[in-house]
Write a protein that binds this DNA or RNA. Sequence first.
RNA 1: GGGCGAGUGGCGGAAUUGGUAUACGCGCACGACUCAAAAUCGUGUUCCUUACGGAUUGUGGGUUCAAGUCCCACCUCGCCCACCA
Length: 825
Amino acid sequence: MQRYNPKDIEPKWQKIWDSEGTYTADLKSDKPKYIAMSMFNYPSGAGIHIGHAMNYTISDVKARFKRQQGYESYHPVGWDAFGLPAENYAIKAGVSPQESMATIIPDYHKQYKAMGWSNDWEKEISTHLPEYYKWSQWIFVQMHKHGLAYQDSRMQWFCEQCQTVLANEQVIDGKCWRHDGPDDPLVQKKEVKQWFFKITDYADELLDAIDDLDWSESVKLAQKNWIGRSEGAEISWQVCDQEGRTERASFETFTTRKDTLPGVMFIVIAPESPLLDDLTTAEHKAEVNKYREESALLGEVERQENKTKTGVFTGKYAKNPFNDQLVPIYVASYVLGGYGTGVVMGMPGHDLRDREFALQHKLPVVLTTAVAKEYEDLNSLDVWTGAGKQVNSGQGFDGLSNKEAGDKIFDQVHKAGQAKPKVNYKMRDWSVSRQRYWGAPIPIIDCPKCGAVLVPEKDLPVILPELDDYAPSGDGRSALARAKDWLTVECPKCGGPAERETDTLDTYIDSSWYMYRYFDPRNLHEIFDKQLVQKWEPIDFYNGADHATAHLLYARFIARFFKKLGLVKEAEPFKQFLFNGKVTASDGRMFSKSKGNGVDPLEIIAQGYGADALRTYMMFAAPLELWTKWDPQGVPGTHRWLSRVWNLVNEYIDQPSADVPQETQAEINRALHAMIKKMTEGLEHNRYNTAIAATMTATNDFYKLKTKHFGKSEVWQKALEGLVACIAPLAPHMSDELWHLLGHSASVHHDSWPKHDEKYLIQDKVTIAVQVNGKLRGEVQVPTGADEDTVVKSAKANEKVASHLKDQTIRKTIYVPGKLVNFVV
RNA sequence: GGGCGAGUGGCGGAAUUGGUAUACGCGCACGACUCAAAAUCGUGUUCCUUACGGAUUGUGGGUUCAAGUCCCACCUCGCCCACCA
């Protein structure tokens, strides 16, 4: 008998699957459809790591399970090829990113195949190819045409040394990621003109649909918080001088605590607010301007670490629309310009930040909600933000609950035309401009006469030209600013001389619609065939360990936009999403090349354990949502189990035929069907670890049963086929080998999933636990379906139970059918 | 600071949602095979106790015939967001 040797059988089957197109999905098939996929890969050149191995195996197992169940199952593959790391790699290595992708991606092909993933390679996509990014640009054009794309100037991080704009994630501890030495300066904010997608138009829709999603709860919550809807009121304030004479200027503030309006002691405006000048007197101008400049230079990190509530007085006042009280207006950096109106009413009685500010600037504090004793010291930093009785607000308000008082206060101010209901969101519009080379050029032509003009659809794609130097141009624009030939064009509107936009599209655009392109990857005439996509959408199963907000929110946004365009029918692109855990080193830290604590999946395969054992271990170690620590003993352990299965089947093949008595047959069938049941339910509900445990239990059972009667027989044949089929999603290579050994000529990977039958699980006897006062005192065997009297009688007859019941009066007997009896004495 | 989640053997983790706690795997120990080792097969393995027996799901309390599971308070750890008015 041959020993289990993955090194032989794995490459053998990979070749066969490849040449037979085992995993090619027929998108026009009449079978029920299923698509399982993981977030596609960013090809960095480092090859796959254990995190990839984890992610892609999860969806691969799912796709295989469904394929075996008879679905037309599609497990697509693609590459999120645009982006900064590839560009920086190209700058360093002196090759074009196009060239480096051309060598990196084929390398990944080998690695994916070595993992035994059932990808459909015919339909592979990559976002950096013109055939793909043409449609990313097309989306921009459609957004623009529907009024959902606009241009605006916003503050952005800027590195003086690189002379370029930085993305948030390129700012590390307040410094540029490439200039983070002790002598390097902090990054600064600079105003940059950029394109935005109006995702905020969809804020409510995106929020409301979250509850119904079959997604990991943590992601649903993260999205809710990210959208950050909050309901409140917008209050109008009249600006006054110090004598209370009204001036022309006015402004609004947003609040969720209408009841605190009587307790407003001051107004605070964000330094970046355009209103600031109007709210500043001539004599305070110099001081305010100085403060504004200082806070603009302040790094975000400094602002976070140093939460001191700095600020200066602007010299002006505002009149409280509720009680006409005059309150001073301050400028302070703790107020965010981008949220609400950028102006805040300071209610130091019930807001911690306002309280800190008031104490620091010696401003009075008044409570409007009666609070518990320990909060009465107005000089402490404790703040009561909870509910209570209204106080200090005048007749008709005091004594009400603060909620009721708030509504009444709002009504009064509302009638005076000084307040209205308002909903605010934390979510901002999606900035889609990147001042970088390696992305899809934004299809815009800047004409000195006509302004920003869309590239006509017939001229798409705007091809990204190859350059000699990919480093940013130095003036805040991408390397494309140096591509003079490419840059200069005629304006599509007036025909005059114009220049192309040098920004490229955020790569999140590429990844927000790729799932649809999987169904029609080579279409040159339209983004995809609507009918095909509508047959296959939504994605049945999607998983990943990152991007809880950005990517998944953008994809939902684009899906809604596509629905509006009539391209898709479903507003939600992903029916089910599993936010799986990551694998860390045994010390709990992240694996990383620089720490030298990496685990290389390909190395594990090469050591002789094989992809099947690696895959099985990763799926078995813990529930999929949990973060797991890498256990170096784990893969050898699953390899041992696979060997046991291998040996069992091979031993069977060599046996002569045998008569298996009914009783043993029943035991074999019970073990088999219990396994099928648990495995089917486990894979269906993403509880892989316990499902795998059930197949191990069945293996152990079969080992015990084979010592009784073993040999060629229908019952053993079916049992081993069932075992092999159930293992196939996890260990596809070994399973196909064993499946063929068991006499099949077709692959195990199609239409082979066994069905369990409850009738085999019924036993003629059941074990009943017997408790006395809730403590386990014995067990009795009774016939299945025995009535209560019979069970209680035999429970009392049990020796140990009887000794505990001796000289006791049974006050109560609890009987749980088929489970236990509890005597209360 | 806010939100979410989790604390079960030496370790990763099970427990049909209130009904026999510790499935399955790792590790460890012992045995078989072997001149020997590896591999394989088998047995055992929560803790205390020679035993009888007792204790046990982070800690303390509660509800219940019965609590890992439900309720209250506390402790510890992890993750995400973080001056969002």
